[in-house]
Simulated assay, not measured.
Amino acid sequence: MPLLEIEGLKKSYMSPEGNRHTIIDVPWFTLQEKSQVALRGESGSGKTTLLNLIAGILKPDEGRVVIDAQEMSALNEPGRDRLRAMNIGYIFQTFNLLQGYTCLENVLLGMSFGPGVDRGFAETLLKRVGLGDRMKHRPRQLSTGQQQRVAVARALANKPKLVLADEPTGNLDHNNAREALGLIREACKENGAALLLVSHDREVLGQFRTVFDLSRINKALDEAATNESEEGS
């Protein structure tokens, strides 16, 4: 059984003009345990929406999201929160660190929503990402690359089976981006987590053996492209 299974997943939004706009329409998608897969998609293609649906941050209009044999999409909000905390690590493009807390406290707070706080493991993770001497620093005292490292440690804090990464190198320069990507992939492998990363960066995508084009799995994009073509003809 796949670690992640998506079936008939749909999500739409109401436009300011009052029209319903479908942004996600994924008939089928699966991800195996410990695999590392990238999704290619341009800005506005629904990449973040798809990840948020998988993580249970958003609830779909239709369809199923099953993670480790548990149907995320069938749960109420507290249930989705619990399933996400126990099974998913999320690396956000903007990191989403709590500015008033230290690196260590950011990781420990992430643990508080999962199986429980393990200070020793939190310190081990921060050392693993090269921040052993920055544990008491707050995010504003760190470089952008170092903040990304804290985000990686926090995503792995609850030993998730699945790590979602939303344009994780988008705010980094070329050298830091390459280093961060290598760190994310290595850390997921060491901790036995599958990785689903979305990006539009060709260099990032080129590091993955398995890359899916979001337009190939998301029928909403195909329909939008068809409509634009018809309007332009």
Rank of each mutant, 00 (worst) to 15 (best):
Q141R: 07
V211C: 12
A193W: 00
L197Q: 08
N158E: 06
T124I: 08
G170N: 04
R138K: 13
G132F: 07
Q146I: 06
R154F: 11
A177G: 15
R119H: 04
F212E: 10
N191H: 15
F212P: 03
R202D: 07
D173A: 10
Q146Y: 05
Q146V: 02
D213F: 15
A165L: 14
H174M: 07
G116W: 03
V211G: 13
R185T: 09
R178D: 09
A165S: 12
Q147N: 10
M111R: 01
H200I: 07
N191E: 08
D118V: 06
F208I: 08
V163F: 06
A220F: 02
E203R: 06
E190Q: 11
N218H: 07
R128P: 01
M111T: 03
G132V: 11
E123D: 12
G192T: 01
S215T: 14
A165Q: 12
I217G: 00
P168G: 06
V129D: 13
A157E: 01
E186R: 13
N171G: 04
E203S: 08
G116Y: 11
D133W: 06
N191Y: 09
L195G: 01
K189L: 09
S112E: 08
F121H: 15
R154M: 11
V204K: 06
R134Y: 02
V117Q: 07
G182D: 11
C188Q: 02
Q207N: 08
E179P: 00
A151T: 12
R149D: 06
A193I: 09
R149Y: 10
Q207G: 09
T144F: 01
G116K: 05
K159V: 07
F208R: 07
L156D: 04
